[in-house]
């Protein structure tokens, strides 16, 4: 997995609530067998007009926010479908960090599996950040995972909490599968016990 340590980049305020993964990347863009190249379809239903031209009202199309690396989101961002394509699309577009009050469970997991940092803050702090980055002069933020801080252009510092293991994994770029495979003996033992305790689970004979 990719590491995440520190980034400096433009933060786009996208405050709509309940943004679902269908909106982040619609089903018709899922006919792919690769993780790459999905950025062009990110938010495609709202990023582009009917005729394929850019919807200039959409935040990521506005000159100042075109190259955003950070998205400040509304409540319950990433709800709905489990499609990891949503995170792949954000990442491929250039978004490396999300800030919001609340993310949907599966989406939140998917972010960290792909080296994307999702920061949860209380609504007061999020509102404050939205206010700051809404002004084009101040839309740049510095996110430092090590010190768990968001720094604004005016050097104002906002601290965030994160579960220690998520922080560790991102800083080290841990590969979960390799780590789990180190536990092979425990898994073997569990399966051995299970065969005795729940023999019907072994007999797949349809």
């Amino acid at each position: 997995m990719e590491k995440f340590k520190k980034i400096v980049g433009i933060a786009a305020p996208f405050t709509r609530i309940n943004v679902d993964t269908d909106l982040i990347i619609p089903a018709e863009s899922l006919k792919t067998i690769s993780r790459k190249g999905l950025g062009k379809d990110l938010f495609s239903y709202i990023r582009f007009n009917e005729n394929g031209s850019q919807n200039n009202k959409f935040i990521l199309n506005q000159p100042n926010y075109k190259n955003s690396k950070i998205l400040v989101t509304g409540k319950n961002f990433g709800c709905g479908s489990s499609r990891e394509h949503a995170v792949w699309a954000l990442k491929d577009f250039g978004i490396k960090c999300l800030i919001g009050t609340e993310f949907a469970d599966i989406f939140y997991n998917n972010c960290f599996k792909n080296g994307v940092l999702a920061i949860i803050l209380d609504s007061k702090k999020v509102e404050k950040i939205i206010k700051i980055v809404s002004s084009s002069k101040n839309s740049e933020l510095e996110i430092d995972l090590e010190s768990q801080t968001v720094k604004t252009k005016q050097n104002e510092i906002i601290n965030f909490d994160i579960l220690p293991y998520l922080k560790r994994n991102l800083l080290e770029g841990v590969d979960d599968i390799s780590k789990t495979l180190e536990k092979k003996k425990l898994i073997d033992e569990y399966e051995f016990d299970m065969k005795k305790k729940y023999p019907w689970l072994e007999k797949k004979n349809g």
Binding site: I106, K113, D176
Partner: peptide, 17 residues
């Protein structure tokens, strides 16, 4: 439901974190 990275994890290990 799980994401694709987790699908890979389950395929390889039959376990999930």
């Amino acid at each position: 439901g799980i994401g694709t990275s987790e699908v890979e994890h389950v395929l390889a290990t039959q376990t999930l974190l």
